[in-house]
Simulated assay, not measured.
Amino acid sequence: MLQTVFFRNSFIFLLCVLSCKKQEESQVPYYNTPDFTPYFLSKGEASEKITHKISHFSFKDQDYKTISDKNINGKIHIASFIFTSCGSICPIMVRNLGLVNQKYSSDPDVVLLSFSVTPWIDTSPKLKAFKESHKIKNPNWHFLTGSKGEIYNLARKSYFAEEDLGFTRDSTEFLHTEHIILADRNKKIRGIYNGTLQTDIEQLIRDIAILKKE
Rank of each mutant, 00 (worst) to 15 (best):
1 M>F: 14
3 Q>M: 12
5 V>M: 12
5 V>D: 11
11 F>T: 07
11 F>I: 06
11 F>G: 08
13 F>Q: 04
16 C>K: 08
20 C>H: 12
21 K>A: 12
26 S>Q: 14
28 V>A: 01
29 P>N: 03
29 P>V: 07
31 Y>V: 05
38 P>Y: 07
40 F>D: 05
41 L>W: 07
46 A>T: 06
47 S>C: 01
51 T>A: 08
51 T>I: 10
53 K>S: 10
57 F>Y: 11
61 D>F: 04
66 T>F: 13
67 I>Y: 05
72 I>N: 02
76 I>F: 02
79 A>M: 15
80 S>D: 12
84 T>H: 03
87 G>E: 12
88 S>E: 14
90 C>G: 03
92 I>N: 05
92 I>P: 03
92 I>C: 07
96 N>F: 01
97 L>Y: 00
98 G>K: 01
98 G>Q: 02
101 N>P: 05
102 Q>C: 04
103 K>P: 02
107 D>N: 13
109 D>Y: 10
112 L>Q: 05
113 L>S: 06
115 F>K: 04
117 V>W: 01
118 T>S: 10
119 P>M: 03
119 P>A: 03
120 W>L: 13
121 I>M: 09
130 F>N: 04
131 K>M: 09
134 H>G: 09
139 P>R: 11
140 N>W: 05
141 W>S: 00
145 T>P: 02
145 T>Y: 02
151 I>K: 01
151 I>M: 08
152 Y>A: 05
154 L>A: 11
156 R>M: 10
161 A>R: 01
163 E>I: 13
166 G>A: 10
168 T>A: 14
170 D>I: 14
170 D>E: 15
170 D>W: 15
170 D>Q: 14
172 T>L: 13
175 L>A: 11
175 L>I: 10
180 I>M: 07
181 I>P: 00
184 D>P: 02
185 R>F: 11
186 N>I: 13
193 Y>P: 00
195 G>M: 03
196 T>L: 05
197 L>I: 10
198 Q>Y: 13
198 Q>H: 11
200 D>H: 10
200 D>Q: 11
203 Q>L: 12
204 L>D: 02
204 L>W: 02
205 I>N: 00
205 I>H: 00
205 I>M: 00
205 I>G: 00
208 I>L: 05
210 I>N: 00
212 K>L: 06
212 K>T: 03
213 K>P: 04
